[in-house]
Amino acid sequence: MLASGLLIGTAGCGFDDGLSRRDAAPPTGTPAPTRTAPAPATPSANPADRQLRLAFAGDVHFTGRTVALLDEPRSAFGPIAEVLRDADLTLVNLETAVTDRGTPEPKPYLFRAPTTAYEALRAAGIDAVSIANNHALDYGRVGLLDTLDSARSARFPVFGAGRDVTEAYAPWLTTVDGVRIAVVGFSQVHALSEQWKPTSTRPGIAMAFDRDRAVGAVAAAHRQADLVIVFMHWGIEGSACPSGEMKSIAGALAGAGADIVVGTHAHTLLADGWLGRTYVHYGLGNFLWYGTSRSTDSGVLRLTVRGREVIRNEFVPAIVSGTGQPRLVSGSAERAIRDKLATARRCTGLSPTK
């Protein structure tokens, strides 16, 4: 986990300071630093030669049985945090508003969490979170603005939403070991998408339905960075196969310059592969989860990249335990998850190799 600096990316702004994972995290409540242009690389620092280890996991929130985990935020994720920390960059989806205010939206499931969620995320080794999902506005625009404000106060990076349309579609920009990385987040969930999309005067989450803007955001990120990651919120709940809508936007994002596309939302694991030179994982399932779900299968996706190329992909199986924490599995439980993933790969339409 790198120490965080930049919160929500703004198009055309510089990268954060790229502090190493060994540096202490900044104290909660410290104002966000002023962004500066990256320092010139040393002559031997060629990003195309650098190898980085990335980690991704699925949906996280603190409500129901998991809110009690925030009584001890530094251990909220349990032992699986060791896997998350063992990467140069770790990303998950934060499936909740972080607020104690707002008006509930007209929807069946409503999630919100206290600000100690950021302490738990940071302690687990998570560097940034997508909030481009169908729960970030569960408590309206007041709740979303609280989420953005509290993230800034905690100096914890979030992406995929913003105070206006420009901020919502902007990448989070960071530098890790000399490699400039841009991360963008989009939702492809239909419910309330019209009401939740951002405008020039209204906060909201970045929607993949605005295809031209989403593709343009990825193309712009490609011009700014050595590596472009897209974190999607998409899929059909309970289905281990990607829909045609998912495959279509994945192709468009790959064509625009995305190097990695990963996603969540279906509450079950989907599978991965290559779309040309772009690595795609259609669904990472639940990770730290409040209650019953369509599946308890979970895990951590670990990728090794060199330049823009994914040179190794590995999925570390886990299950969502009775506490809501993800727990690593082995033996027959691990084999069962790997067998399900092997079956799911048949419907991805992706190549097993580049």
Rank of each mutant, 00 (worst) to 15 (best):
S75Q: 15
S75L: 13
A76E: 06
F77A: 03
P79F: 14
I80R: 11
A81K: 09
A81D: 06
E82S: 15
R85W: 08
R85S: 14
D88P: 09
L89T: 04
L91W: 05
L94Q: 08
T96G: 11
T96K: 10
V98L: 05
T99F: 05
D100V: 10
P104T: 01
P104F: 00
P106V: 02
P106D: 05
K107C: 07
P108I: 11
R112W: 11
P114L: 00
T115F: 13
E119V: 12
A120H: 13
L121I: 01
L121C: 02
I126E: 09
I126V: 15
I126D: 08
D127P: 11
S130V: 05
I131Q: 05
I131V: 14
N133I: 11
H135R: 08
H135T: 07
H135G: 03
A136I: 12
A136V: 14
L137I: 12
L137R: 15
Y139K: 01
G140V: 04
G140M: 09
G140H: 09
V142E: 11
G143M: 05
L144S: 01
T147L: 02
L148G: 04
D149H: 01
S150N: 05
S150P: 00
A151R: 02
A154M: 08
R155S: 11
R155W: 01
R155T: 09
P157S: 03
V158A: 08
G160E: 06
G160F: 02
G162H: 08
V165I: 15
E167A: 13
A168I: 14
W172Y: 15
W172M: 12
T174Y: 04
T175N: 12
T175W: 02
G178D: 07
G178F: 11
V179F: 10
R180N: 14
I181Y: 05
